[in-house]
Amino acid sequence: MDASRPLFIPVILGTARMGRMSLHAARLVTREVGKRAGVETELIDITQLPLPTEDAGEAIKDPGYSSKVERADALIIVAPEYNHGYSGLLKHVLDSCLKEYIHKAVGIVGVSAGPFGGARMIQNLLPVMRELGLVTIFWDVNFSSVQKVFDKDGKLLDEAFIGRMDKFLKELIWMAKTLRQGREQIPRG
């Protein structure tokens, strides 16, 4: 394994809703990931991906998204709760790749205006992660009452989230390093 190659952990913003507060959360997460030594990151906004809707799955794979996910060692998905689930557009994007995800780590950040911080969205997204070959970590970050966590300009109002993200990111980075070793060096049994 080339240990000098930095880890790449992009952040996927999984909502297209106008006025989305998840954008503030995604930007914060991206900044925090980018502070880690040996880690590179990038915010992937699903609204900016040119995926058609007259087909689905790998048939509509976008080369830009595919190459970023192929390069990735882990993913962070930041998404709000849509009727207890995740957005249809997020699923449409996730379904457009497969080999790019296999044996890579994923952490999920839930966002909600209410008290549950996207917990139900996360629970519903977990089986999708498993089927895509992604490896979930047991830490989440939950931005509940998100309108109180950020001001209208996206400034973080509750510094406790920095500590919560630290634990989440430590676990994700450990898993990303471990799985890179596995993907590159350990043959399947």
Binding site: D2, R5, R71, K99, E100, I102, H103, G133, R180, R183
Partner: peptide, 14 residues
């Protein structure tokens, strides 16, 4: 489907 990863660049193939 088989999944393969390059130990040098991390590229994937299937």
């Amino acid at each position: 489907e088989e999944f393969h990863t390059c130990p040098k660049c991390g590229g994937v193939a299937s």
